[in-house]
Nucleic acid binder design. Structure first.
Lengths: 213, 213
DNA sequence: CCCGGCATCATCCGTTCGGCTATCGCGGGG
DNA sequence: CCCCGCGATAGCCGAACGGATGATGCCGGG
């Protein structure tokens, strides 16, 4: 490690103080990694990033109330000289990954990864590389060449409402379409998920992490 | 702090290495707290507790695959000279708290608590006190004077079949009862879970971990 | 340029749900 | 001893659902 190397500046975004403090202690055990700020929500994240100009932001996807990690990622990436964003979260949903990467995240790691992988991930992201946890990558790959047809965006949306227990008529109102359209989407969903009822669809969708519980 | 005081011995149980390492760094910043072991699942927890005989175990409720934190708590509490168990987790569901406390946990804190509260919690639990995060306490109190939605064994059974997408007639056949009975159980389930459809019931049941996803 | 997937909408029809009300036997706690 | 919760049962009825079938417009790849 070159002594003239300034090291990487990090900002932590997580709504749990315990996790933040823990992460800070962890990464600061590495000589080349420095935590220059923390935030517990989107607003604080923007503020601290504007002031500290970090190289990499470690972002939890689930920020409790307010804007989620994906939205916050997009927010930070739209700043001038935006930092790289490395998602560090617990649950994996296909749509979570997609939206996070679409929002401009450079990587996606899980909290059940060993610290080593985290350190390597941070450095890789700082270099401009993209890093994905193997579980995450596997999930994406499985989707690509799986015999199971992928659900459309609209269908996933319907599934979300379905899990909220809404009737077809309600969904139609929410989505500003007719009830016939909703039933049509549902029929497709049933076929793709190989189920034959709303309840079965919800269970399978959660099980396959198409929607979160 | 008395120099002859040996300090409190802790074991961390969490399936996320990042969180474990973070927690370790955090609590070891306190002179009187020592982490003597870590575990990522129930089996490892039992093993390390048997060997290290800690005063307090910090337990995550969501241990990924295998036995959950509540089951692990019960396991540890049934050992000879059991350690105190302090639940340290993210989400709060009524049933989570109940089962954890029933399993013999001495406290229930949330990961969004400030580190200070955590340190105080650990010391209090070690002294034999019971500690509850204020959010948790509020939730429990609310439960006491509101009709508690404790589902019957039969009702949980119905929920399982419901998540498989079975029709009432099918469930009736499986359970060797009439369809009327099934509908009766469903009506009770809807009331207790505060939903009004099968799909909503499935989602809420999975969310509250009444049935597995 | 045509085909296919997607989203949209429509109608028909038989089945299923879910709410309502009511009954019955059983067991436990006041 | 009586009441209550639980499981089981029944019938009624309007609303919701799910399948089948077909049609339109749009867009993108071959």
């Amino acid at each position: 490690m070159d002594a003239t190397e300034p090291g990487l500046c990090l900002v932590l975004v997580d709504d749990h103080p315990v996790v933040r403090a823990g992460l800070r202690a962890l990464v600061e055990s590495q000589a080349d990694l420095d935590v220059v700020g923390e935030a517990r929500d989107a607003a604080a994240a923007e503020d601290v990033v504007r002031r500290t100009r970090p190289d990499v932001v470690l972002m939890d996807l689930n920020l409790g109330a307010g804007p989620g990690g994906a939205a916050t990622t997009a927010l930070l990436r739209n700043l001038p000289q935006p930092p790289r964003v490395l998602i560090l979260t617990t649950y994996v949903t296909e749509t979570d990954i997609r939206t996070a990467l679409d929002a401009g995240a450079s990587g996606y790691l899980l909290k059940d990864a060993p610290p080593d992988e985290l350190f390597r991930g941070i450095r890789a992201v700082a270099r401009g590389e993209t890093v994905l946890a193997s579980d995450v990558a596997a999930l994406l790959v499985r989707r690509v060449n799986s015999p199971e047809p992928a659900l459309t965006e609209r269908e996933v949306q319907i599934l979300g409402l379905l899990a909220d227990g809404l009737a077809n008529k309600e969904m139609a109102r929410r989505l500003l379409v007719s009830e016939a359209t909703v039933k049509s989407h549902l029929a497709h969903i049933y076929t793709k998920l190989a189920v034959e009822s709303r309840a079965g669809a919800v269970a399978k969708a959660i099980e396959q992490r198409i929607i979160r519980a």
